[in-house]
């Protein structure tokens, strides 16, 4: 298992005046926040609040209309930044390449960038799969795996990059409660083991408050509140309180 000592430490992320309009509608309305090196930062919010669009900007898949996202002070869209800092993303669907085996998926970054010999890549793949509890699944195809296993393979693929910053998009969506706990524990233990900075986008309140060092609640493209889980729970904002306490109540029968 990889130790924290032989990993480069996590990097910080700075978001400055981020705005994005799509089709005349403003999706992100001026976001400013910092993610500190090595912390687990959770972005929460209801569906349609702009979380996923924000995440696509943070990883550099989209270009903002205004503002900037910086990794350690350098724009994420600048040439060479993605090479200089190892950044990984775990997609909501896993984002595994369905035409490749699990092993090929996990070793894809190392293979394509020719960073190691095939033997070394096979060793790294086995090690990372063991880290996420999927030892011996190298030869399987993604279609043979359950939703939870696919997400764990995606985490193993992210780990093979030896990341300094990992983004997770709804890591527990479509998972049963037990699998959700496994994924949450995995995210938390990664921070302890390798000191990676984690940015998690989720609407899962249990996951968010269970693993976060800090939480930002976003709605209609704006940050409503930001702070430690305890601070966010004490937020007087009615939208935050409604989001945190919403629950289903069966109508009373006569």
């Amino acid at each position: 298992m990889t130790s924290k000592a032989n990993h480069r430490s996590g990097v910080g992320l700075q978001v400055r005046g981020l705005r994005r309009s799509l089709g005349g509608q403003e999706i992100l309305r001026g976001l400013d926040f910092d993610v500190r090196p090595g912390e687990i930062f959770v972005i929460m919010g209801p569906s349609g609040s702009g979380k996923s669009v924000l995440l696509r900007h943070l990883i550099g898949l989209e270009t903002p209309s205004e503002g900037e996202i910086q990794v350690d002070g350098q724009s994420i869209l600048a040439e060479g930044v993605m090479n200089k800092y190892r950044i990984a993303m775990v997609f909501q669907s896993g984002g595994l390449l369905n035409s490749l085996t699990v092993g090929e998926n996990v070793g894809l970054y190392l293979t394509e960038h020719q960073l190691k010999t095939p033997e070394e890549i096979a060793r790294v793949v086995a090690e990372k799969l063991e880290d996420v509890g999927l030892k011996g699944t190298e030869g399987k195809m993604p279609s043979e795996l359950s939703g939870g296993m696919r997400k764990r393979v995606a985490i193993a693929r992210a780990l093979a990059i030896e990341p300094q910053l990992i983004f997770y998009d709804e890591p527990t969506s479509e998972l049963d409660p037990l699998s959700s706990v496994v994924i949450a524990e995995e995210i938390a233990s990664l921070n302890e083991r390798i000191g990676v900075t984690s940015v998690v986008v989720s609407h899962d309140r249990e996951l968010s408050f269970g693993i976060a060092d800090r939480v930002a609640v976003i709605n209609e493209g704006r940050i409503i509140t930001i702070g430690t889980p305890a601070e966010v729970r004490r937020s007087p904002d009615p939208m935050v309180q409604e989001f945190l306490t919403a629950g289903f109540k069966r109508p009373a029968t006569v």
């Binding site: 950044i87 990984a88 984002g95 595994l96 390449l97 970054y109 960038h113």
Partner: peptide, 25 residues
């Protein structure tokens, strides 16, 4: 169909986040 489904199911996004150029790959 193959590249289109890779796009729809975020496989191409995954390539880009791994700094793998979809044109090369």
């Amino acid at each position: 169909a193959e590249i289109g489904s890779m796009r729809v199911y975020q496989e191409i996004d995954a390539l880009r986040t791994m700094n793998i150029n979809p044109i090369h790959y």
